[in-house]
């Protein structure tokens, strides 16, 4: 465990807790893409199946359990408890356009042709694009609430820190995982445009809105 991974994980945790807290506190999930949240839920569940097969550390097990629990809670709030506030008219990205190709790719490009490994690979690929419905929704409505922007910034920071973590691990541990690195870089690139808007607008106290 290096500092970049730890801060990245904490940033990841902060992001998902922030989103859950925002929905709970405002009793509304307006502006939040339920489809992105379903895909993140799928990401955690398919990746963390190893909770049942091998133990790594208390930290690892606890974080995995929290991620799965928070993801399920968020999906529950969006699709059940606060369903009336869910902005489905603007959440129109088709999930199958991501899940089907990503599933196919996981079958073709993986480290090992076993069920657990293919599901792990699927989750890595899916995570890299899971945020697209959320970004698509923001581009459709032309704006994002400030807390949603903070959520995206914390999530993007986690990805960027993981890249630094991989550089560190390559130099100091001689370890690298090409699947995780390529998918992680793709994912981080998707946040770049958002990062720019966040720094130029939200950090200066303005709401994130796209130019007309």
């Amino acid at each position: 465990m290096n500092i970049f991974r730890l801060v990245g994980d904490l940033s990841h945790l902060l992001a998902i807790l922030l989103l859950l807290w925002k929905i709970w506190k405002t009793r509304s999930c307006a502006g939040v893409s339920g489809k992105s949240q379903i895909m993140f839920g799928l990401v955690y569940i398919t990746r963390y199946l190893d909770l049942f097969t091998n133990f790594i550390s208390i930290y690892n097990t606890t974080m995995k359990a929290i991620f799965i629990a928070v993801a399920i809670a968020t999906i529950y709030l969006i699709y059940f408890k606060f369903k009336a506030t869910y902005d489905s008219n603007h959440d129109t990205f088709r999930m199958e356009f991501l899940i089907v190709p990503v599933g196919g790719l996981a079958f073709l490009v993986n480290h090992d042709f076993t069920a657990l490994e293919i599901l792990w690979t699927f989750s890595i690929y899916l995570e890299s694009v899971a945020i697209l419905p959320q970004l698509f929704m923001i581009s459709k409505t032309g704006e994002a609430e400030t807390i949603t922007s903070h959520y995206l910034f914390a999530l993007g920071s986690y990805r960027a820190l993981y890249i630094v973590n991989w550089v560190y691990r390559y130099y100091f541990e001689g370890f690298f995982d090409l699947i995780a690195i390529v998918a992680g870089c793709v994912q981080t690139i998707l946040y770049c445009d958002f990062f720019y808007l966040y720094v130029t607008k939200v950090m200066h106290g303005k709401k994130l809105s796209l130019p007309a």
């Binding site: 994980d9 790594i56 690892n60 974080m63 991620f67 691990r169 370890f175 699947i179």
Partner: peptide
Amino acid sequence: SKFDPSKDEL
């Protein structure tokens, strides 16, 4: 099974 370092990442 052998220890796979990428699986200790979240």
